[in-house]
Design a protein around this nucleic acid. Structure first.
Lengths: 201, 201
DNA sequence: GACATAAAATACCGGCCGGTAACAAATGAG
DNA sequence: CTCATTTGTTACCGGCCGGTATTTTATGTC
């Protein structure tokens, strides 16, 4: 833990609220698309000057990386919570479906998936974080499926890794369709169809 | 058919080969991403000057629209050929799977899907063409599924439209994964899993 | 007061973008 | 030949980008 006391404040006191700037950036990246939001635009929206932003985050890459970190802990954590809830296969798939197809947070898509889709346009540290999150998510999906496999409710000769990849990509597809304005009920219908392969009666 | 005679050639004879330029543009857009290829880059690759390109295509939108048209008749036609081949459900799905997961033409993805994914970055006429192709493809998928429904090999209470959307999106997902360098065998495995909902035994 | 310090804002940098004005070259018409 | 016509190229336009040098402003220290 770092000191959060005034810490011998010399010099001009800062007026910039880094948290607020990060909120603005995360929201802007999330609501539209990281590739379509310039640092100039973020500075304007946050009401700060460009050098202030660069002093805090170093570069556009640093800012987008920080925004992604924030997004991971504020939003993606919900997905991991579902996967780690210890519920059964059916309930967990239902919760994931609800999240992807109906949760208002995914109404304009998922920042992580948007970044992953345009990976080559990201700076190195942001791209690395995207890949890290991707690997973590895949591992979480695989661990969940493995646990359900051990519990016995597993369909056929599908490896947990392959199933995890499939599951993750279907969720990603559904959320990406949310972002493109598709009818949520249609999305839910398609996702249910895709995930029905996990619950052969 | 228009006249392809010299047509009273006055003025300086043209050296620019519009077909070749269009090939260059289509390939460049296709191999990387329409949003990442500038008209400057295309002119350089095609060995022509910018005003020459603009005289022929009017604008970047005109060029990308023409490139998409070319792509539709050169590549997408293969998909429609599969759908209109009159083969059975299983064979047609297998052919679609082969195309998406193994055809070398899809090794770097599909220009149409790349454009559709970044629809908001396109000019108006190109975007309109994307939407037109999307509707046409969906109609073709639906017509195929409807024909198989009439033929009796249809699984459950799924509408042809919903099935068409699902089928089309799964193909799109598979091809998009090709573009991102995913292992083709893994892609085939996942696509088979996704399409297995159509062939409940 | 004078001074160091740190954060703010202004104004700028080179670079690339889509697009075009202005001009050079090559042909047919008279 | 002259002239209109068409294509080509060079050189430029304004605009936005990510990033920064420079200066102003606000504070604590002495």
């Amino acid at each position: 833990m770092s000191n959060d006391e005034p810490k011998l404040a010399r010099g001009r006191p800062r007026t910039m609220n880094a948290e607020k700037v990060l909120d603005v950036a995360m929201t802007a990246y999330w609501q539209s698309d990281p590739a379509d939001v310039s640092v100039n635009a973020i500075c304007q929206m946050a009401g700060i000057s460009k050098p202030s932003l660069y002093r805090e985050f170093g570069s556009e890459d640093g800012l987008s990386r920080a925004a992604l970190d924030r997004y991971a802990e504020r939003v993606l954590s919900a997905v991991f919570a579902i996967l780690h809830s210890g519920k059964g296969l059916h309930d967990t798939l239902a919760a994931l479906t609800d999240f992807a197809a109906a949760d208002p947070r995914m109404e304009t898509g998922c920042l992580f998936y948007k970044m992953r889709a345009g990976k080559h346009r990201l700076g190195p540290t942001t791209r690395a974080r995207v890949e890290e999150i991707d690997a973590t998510a895949q591992a979480a999906y695989a661990a969940f499926l493995q646990s359900r496999c051990d519990a016995g409710d597993w369909p056929d000769g599908l490896s947990a890794e392959a199933g995890a990849k499939y599951l993750g990509e279907q969720i990603a597809l559904a959320i990406t369709q949310r972002a493109s304005g598709e009818d949520p009920e249609r999305i839910r219908e398609m996702l249910n169809l895709a995930l029905s392969v996990f619950i052969r009666p």
